[in-house]
Amino acid sequence: MKTRKNSKKVNHAIQDIKWETEYKHQQKKRNRTQTMENIIHGIFLLLGLITVGCVLLITVYLVISGIPAIKEIGIADFLFGKEWASTAAQPEYGILPFILTSIYGTAGAIVIGVPIGFMTAVYLSKMASPKVKSAMQTAVSLLAGIPSVVYGLVGMLVLVPGIRKIFNVPDGASLLAAIIVLAIMILPSIIKMSVTALDAVPKEYEDASLALGATPVETYFKVSVPAAKSGIAAAVVLGVGRAIGEAMAVMMVAGNVPNMPDSLFQSVRFLTTAVSSEMSYSSGLQRQALFSIALVLFLFIMLINVTLNFFLKREKE
């Protein structure tokens, strides 16, 4: 009887020990999983921070390197000076021609590109048959994938001589050529984003409109487009961003002369091309001024991004 009781006790003790080791084992395992989780979490955070770090680095670098020249030239003379003659004996550093050219060029591209892109998007999203839609969307994606130097090349070989002949001007490399090239370049972003916004309009809205006796076209323009307006506005802002930041193609077709953009047929230089065309041989104040131009361009693009985010946020709501 006693031995049996004892053996029972022993059995219990053994069981306890077993449980304890098992418990410890489990806990160890859990700790290890937790550590692993933390490490992976850390790696992902680090990778994410690379992007943030780059943005911060570029911002800080641009501000630090862009400010000295502005200080030396004077902010008003720099921003509103009409003369850029960086290599003259009496150098002038006014970037108003570049600012205006960039604004006019972008505005022109928007005026031409937005109606075409918007109408295309409405057609693709609402009217095109699935076959046509997929074929045209492939074409749009290809257009987006063409390198800008190719746009520049085609513009140089086709557009520039074309403008010279049609309008009978001495040189076709002009603001107009840049506007046309930019208008084509921004089409893919405008079309794609507008199509996405229009596709997301609930079908119930369109059904309700049709059931009230509105025609399909009335429905698209009175219901679908207003419902997608934030997304379409975002598409336009994206197009603005793309146009103002483009350098290579406009360098090849705009003539690249620092003139005030007084006419569409003037050879002009954009903010982007002002930096890229002189950077390789610049020095001293000239080089610093180029950094300041980059800073101005950067501020423009920041402004556009803030606007874009504003529209995207509203779209989500």
Partner: peptide
């Protein structure tokens, strides 16, 4: 068909007012 739908109106399963 548009005049027909004007004469024969419809109310849907899920309320679907326009976002206006």
């Amino acid at each position: 068909v548009n005049s027909l739908r004007k004469e024969i109106g419809m109310v849907f399963q899920k309320p679907n007012p326009f976002p206006m």
